[in-house]
């Protein structure tokens, strides 16, 4: 697939935005500025970036508890996201949702989700709506390897396939469900093998190679868009941090961790961009500086924003 410079630099900017957002979240959480739980996407940036590059605002995604990367890649606004992490009134959810419940329905983001596997049937419903309304929109469902052990996975994939719905299931296989390694909880090595049970394509890609993710996802999304039904794309990747901030991840083999850190998707992509002369090092530095400035501004905006008023706790329980 021949990709234009502009598109590739767009990938880079998205990956760097996620990296900067999450890196700052590490510091802010350690500094007690972020309440609650934060599950970070560091190391997995290539997946959300490569997948969402083929989506428009009319397409839907369902995300997970580890959702910041998906939201940014789908066009979510980093200042509103950051303010939500702070629990401020200016946040995406007015401080009522927090990290695990950020949504932007206008952008087709049907929410991060605190329940593992819950996004799977929701994405099927969104895809049903796309087909029912005779649009060419699609839904993409992000979920982890461990979420493929939930019953929602089976029910959602079965329903999506019998009706040939425009949905793409993106498994982010970071090899760990909280503290448990995939090999201890699954007989198969590849979650993609499970696709055959539903009679749909299942492919495995290097989830730390943004181009590989982009190509596999683009094909699956295009297939869904033209009415040929669902597919499952498994992106092999690695979660750098613990399950949540504060979890030191002591259950992981340090050698495995070190080996995966070497596969960091960002330097790999930088190298490719420079070697293939899509960008110079200084151009990449400029992008990096730009996104870091953007995240700093988002933090400042969040810090300077007010907390919600006590009475706001009781609004939005029911829609008008």
């Amino acid at each position: 697939m021949e990709l234009k410079k502009e598109k590739l630099l767009g990938f880079y900017e998205t990956m760097m935005t996620i990296r900067a957002f999450e890196s700052k979240a590490v510091e802010l959480f350690a500094d007690n500025q972020l309440p609650g739980f934060v599950h970070l996407y560091l190391g997995e940036e290539a997946v959300a970036t490569g997948v969402c590059a083929s989506l428009t605002n009319k397409d839907y995604i369902t995300s997970t508890h580890r959702g910041h990367g998906h939201l940014i890649a789908k066009g979510g606004k980093v200042d509103l996201m950051m303010a939500e992490l702070f629990g401020k009134a200016t946040g995406y959810c007015k401080g009522k949702g927090g990290s695990m419940h950020i949504a932007d329905v206008e952008l087709g983001i049907l929410g991060a989700n605190g329940i593992v596997g819950a996004g799977q049937p929701i994405s099927v419903g969104a895809a049903f709506a796309c087909k029912y309304k005779k649009t060419d929109s699609v839904a993409v469902c992000f979920f982890g390897d461990a979420a493929s052990n939930r019953g929602t996975f089976h029910e959602a994939l079965n329903m999506a396939t019998i009706w040939n719905l425009p949905v793409v299931f993106i498994c982010e296989n970071n090899l760990y469900g909280i503290s448990n390694c995939q090999r201890d909880h699954m007989k198969v090595t590849d979650v993609a093998d499970r696709a055959s049970a539903y009679g749909i394509p299942g492919v495995v890609v290097d989830g730390n190679d943004v181009i590989a993710v982009y190509e596999a996802a683009a094909e699956a999304i295009e297939r869904a868009r033209r009415g040929d039904g669902p597919s499952l794309v498994e992106c092999k990747t690695w979660r750098w941090r613990g399950h949540f901030e504060g979890d030191p991840g002591a259950y992981k083999d340090p050698e495995e961790q070190a080996a995966w850190l070497k596969k960091d998707p960002i330097p790999r992509f930088e190298q490719k961009l420079v070697e293939l002369k899509y960008a110079t090092k200084s151009e990449l530095e400029e992008i990096k500086a730009k996104v870091e400035k953007q995240i700093d501004a988002a933090i400042l905006f969040s810090q300077n924003s007010p907390y919600p008023n006590p009475e706001d706790a009781l609004t939005d329980v029911y829609a008008e």
Partner: peptide, 22 residues
């Protein structure tokens, strides 16, 4: 639908979020 209560309700949630009234 298939006998899949979780998907019946879960997908109804997604369809409703995407503009239908299941």
């Amino acid at each position: 639908t298939p006998i899949s209560e979780t998907a019946i309700v879960g997908a109804a949630v997604g369809a409703a979020a995407a503009g239908l009234r299941p």
